[in-house]
Design a protein around this nucleic acid. Structure first.
Lengths: 196, 196, 196, 196
DNA sequence: AATGAATGAGAATTCATTCAT
DNA sequence: AATGAATGAATTCTCATTCAT
């Protein structure tokens, strides 16, 4: 929750520093001390802009989610049919920003942290559900309803799995290959299920 | 006369306690104090059997990997062809033990921890590579070489993605659905790529 | 044109806020932040009107002492003899303002703080001495000199003890009972010591 | 609450150090750092024996109360009638240990702290009530019931007031004078109220 | 082998005070 | 005069690790 009258710039600066530190040291290694040093400010100021570390982490995860969400929405606006919508979702998940190793590591760190944080798990669950229901919605227009849910789950898992494995690749995700894998999956699904 | 193998028993006991704690509190919340309490021993004893906490975590992750590996190997022994081998790999990844929420949470915790631990990242990378090369090997016997790698990557990502998402489901992974998704993927791949 | 006496008003406003906070949170819990919020001003302003927190506390204690002193002096003006003077002192110590729970809590807080503050201890000691010498002076006109000091000490202790205990009563001091106790003490003293 | 199996000696040692620090610096100035230095141990050990600082303070106040209580009980055992019982209570409140300046300062510090601490206020209130009901009980055997309560309140206030003022005397309480004041009050009360 | 007391570095957080605006 | 952002020292508490018994 943003405090009133605060400088939005400082908040973003601190969140950026937090993400940098989470990338480098993990959520737990991202101490207030390291974060403030990274941001070039004193330790005290962090608590001027965020209630506590959890609040800062929440803000940071929200920013990650916002970036992801915007990338997807932007692409979906251009989609002219359900197939293109699904392709937009895929592409949005592997946009330039998302595929950086840094992003994948941050995502993995937040996922793990979310397991033991009520606030983060809520954000994470909402996001996962949105991806799934989004995909389901479009698949339902392309293939039989009874299959759409399973296929949507498969696509969601595929996307998340690529991200997860990307965190362990030196260069992060290979966007081209990632898109290829997902498009390939989509094609096969359409081939198999779509009524001729 | 010293009890033979007592040492081994204590180690396993401590590792079990560690896994319990990682499940409940995450890697970082799994303090030596909690772990030893969970194991019903003193805090000091941990350092008799493990050099330090990292060593204990390594041992714990190795056990997880061993369980997973054994489950897969056991199933693969019964496979009579490459398709069945792939199915065995899939099934082994979603065996009873692996699909428990507890296991998925522990895995996710270790993955995130591995990002900042040389030892754990090595274990994790080796494991990921093994799954990938394993799948690639069998796919190469079923579909064109140039496609096998991509498809194997897809299958690996699908498997890991299901695990990842399972960590956020109340009941962990739905084994039946997980198998279905992967088998479905396999079928479609064979349908599409296999020479008629 | 600057508002005349604005400075004085701000000071009083801050002191009132300080007393409110000391009542609610104790001297130590009365942070500059809480005080300024209570006064409806910024934190920075406090240091415009007071050198530092100690200075603010000193000002606050002085106000408490002033209130107490005025109440007593006002009543003493009406006293027509030494007995009435003593009764005036008693009554002044248990005037409406003083007996509120809030006042008793603030007093107790300042007393404790004074133990480790040179400035406050001086104020406090002066005040205690004044009460004592005041009482002694009047008792000396009523009972033998050698007894007056002891009796004055007793009366002073009785008054302070009632205050102290009032800080732990839900409704503060019961003025009627407090006066009764002290008057009773006075009567007994006069009965015993006064030359018939 | 004492942890099981802990060394009673260390607890007492830490409580003694705490009381020393409260005497020197007040409750708030008695930091864990100072306390552990005073006790000649590391800061960490404090939390091995006490859950947190509040717990340590509670333990410290309990010890003060125990000392006071024991001194009174011991003296009351020798009392042969109600007058002697009251004298025993008085004397117990001004025993050698209690009259030291150090004790009076610690008491005053705890009283003020109790105003904003649920645990401490309970201890303090119980203690105050005990003193009052104890005195009331004995006075009821000596003077008319309707007067006993008021007189008991007076005696209790007198005792506490002497303590309070003792905190501001260089040498603490003058035991002889304190006893004299209280005995004097008792005598006058008996003289006035007791049926002849 | 086993205990758990003890250490001390490091974590988050608070807060009086300063200072640019 | 007034604000509130910014500082950094100080505080409580945690925890891996060591060590005497």
């Amino acid at each position: 929750m943003p405090k009133v009258g605060m400088s939005q710039i400082r908040r973003e600066q601190l969140i950026e520093a937090t993400l940098d530190c989470v990338d480098l040291h993990g959520v737990n290694g991202a101490t207030i001390s390291k974060i403030s040093k990274q941001a070039g400010v004193s330790t005290g100021i962090v608590h001027h802009y965020f209630h506590n570390k959890d609040d800062l982490l929440e803000g940071s995860m929200r920013l990650m989610l916002a970036h992801l969400g915007h990338g997807i929405i932007k692409r979906k606006l251009l989609a002219k049919n359900h197939t293109e919508s699904i392709l937009a979702i895929i592409d949005g998940n592997f946009s330039e920003k998302q595929i950086e190793r840094k992003s994948t590591k941050i995502w993995l760190s937040f996922w793990a942290e979310a397991l033991h944080s009520e606030v983060l798990v809520r954000l994470q669950t909402v996001n996962m559900r949105r991806l799934h229901s989004n995909l389901t919605y479009h698949f339902k227009h392309l293939i039989p309803h009874e299959d759409a849910k399973l296929v949507a789950s498969g696509m969601a898992a595929l996307i998340d799995g690529i991200w997860l494995r990307g965190a362990f690749m030196e260069k992060g995700i290979d966007a081209k290959q990632a898109n290829l894998m997902c498009q390939n999956y989509l094609e096969m699904v359409l081939e198999k299920y779509s009524p001729v």
